[in-house]
């Protein structure tokens, strides 16, 4: 992830003055795509993602004077977005979050140990051109309990370091890594056990000869 630009603020700036509006525009322009990508991966669909982006930047606009500049701006925005996401979820009052235990991912037979994701010989980019695999991956991530999903999205999709994920979610690094491992085991099991047994032949991509 590239370093975010520094936005200069005068200590006396309020959230209503022209300098603030200019700073906001720059913040928005530089980071809206990043936060939308994150929001879409968390929410799984565009409309909820747009709501989350708006909530995030509204809170950033209001809290801009409190940004101390000791973190990357992207980390600060991810933190605001992850809190906004938790608040939006609480409002929807879904089923309580389920814990993933390591034990549930322990294979019980040799066959289960050796389940494979059928992408042999294909690069990840090539494999993901297969719609069935892409949908299976999206569905697996979507089925993750939210606190595991947020760690997986930040770490393995957004490329944020474990330490930064800890800062964003208010967790220590050990907890981040523990959740990440369970999340990956969950997605691996979903992908390998979904009956994607046939080799992935990409009908739109036959340059491989």
């Amino acid at each position: 992830m590239s370093a975010s630009p520094t936005i200069r603020r005068s200590p006396a700036s309020s959230s209503r003055d022209p300098q603030s509006a200019k700073n906001f525009d720059r913040l928005y322009k530089d980071h809206v795509d990043l936060i939308y990508r994150f929001a879409h991966r968390l929410c799984g669909e565009p409309e909820a993602a747009k709501d989350l982006v708006q909530e995030t930047f509204l809170n950033a606009y209001r809290g801009f004077d409190r940004f101390r500049g000791d973190a990357q701006i992207s980390t600060w925005l991810y933190t605001i977005a992850s809190r906004a996401c938790r608040r939006m979820r609480r409002r929807r009052k879904g089923a309580p979050e389920r814990e993933l235990s390591l034990e549930e991912f322990i294979p019980t037979s040799d066959g289960e140990f050796r389940l494979q994701i059928p992408i042999d010989g294909l690069s990840p980019e090539e494999a993901l051109q297969n719609k069935e695999l892409r949908h299976a991956l999206d569905a697996a991530i979507d089925q993750l309990p939210k606190k595991y999903k947020m760690v997986l999205v930040l770490r393995d999709m957004e490329g944020v370091s474990a330490k930064e994920v800890g800062t964003i979610m208010g967790l220590n690094e050990r907890a981040v890594k523990s959740r990440l491992h369970r999340a990956r085991l969950f997605v691996r099991r979903q992908l390998s056990a979904r009956g994607l047994g046939e080799p992935l032949i990409d009908h739109n991509h036959d340059s491989r000869g």
């Binding site: 389940l115 993901l128 393995d156 997605v187």
Partner: peptide, 20 residues
């Protein structure tokens, strides 16, 4: 085999297309 499929899982997540 298990570690290979776990590596593939991570690799697929990393290369998943970014919504725009």
């Amino acid at each position: 085999t298990f570690v290979m499929s776990l590596r593939q899982t991570v690799s697929l997540c990393r290369h998943s297309p970014a919504p725009t």
